[in-house]
């Protein structure tokens, strides 16, 4: 990451996006912005992947799955999501997200809401 001070304008070159936030920018803060943007992007990608898996398994249309919020109930709320479907969901998550889900990971909390499942997937992907 390289920063060129150009008067009042700081330009960040390299992996991070161009930062245009005034003269007080330091290399450290620019790095942090770059990192948090990368994390946000990864989270967005993961979110999209997880919604696609749910759409494939539950045969729900993309609009319905796109409308899921963190509070949307899953296991026990969606009639399509029975134990066979949960098994398929977890196996497909392992495959597409390149993670390993252990017996102990599977509990009511991770499956209760979409937000819970996303947080679980995120922790698994980060810990990989």
């Amino acid at each position: 990451m390289a920063i060129r001070n150009d008067g009042n304008r700081n330009q960040v070159q390299g992996r991070g996006a161009v930062a245009d936030r005034g003269p007080a920018m330091t290399e450290e803060s620019a790095d942090k912005i770059g990192e948090s943007k990368a994390m946000a992007q990864n989270r967005h990608t993961l979110d999209m992947q997880l919604r696609a898996i749910l759409s494939d398994i539950l045969n729900l249309d993309a609009d319905r799955v796109a409308s899921f919020t963190n509070e949307t109930g899953l296991f026990g709320h969606l009639p399509e999501l029975d134990s066979m479907a949960v098994a398929g969901l977890l196996t497909e998550m392992e495959d597409r997200l390149d993670i390993l889900i252990e017996d102990d990971d599977v509990d009511g909390e991770m499956l209760e809401t979409y937000g819970g499942l996303l947080a679980f997937a995120e922790a698994k992907v980060v810990g990989n």
Partner: peptide
């Protein structure tokens, strides 16, 4: 097998 074993475990 993994998917089938997992379904049984969840049931």
């Amino acid at each position: 097998l993994r998917a089938m074993l997992r379904a049984r475990s969840i049931q």
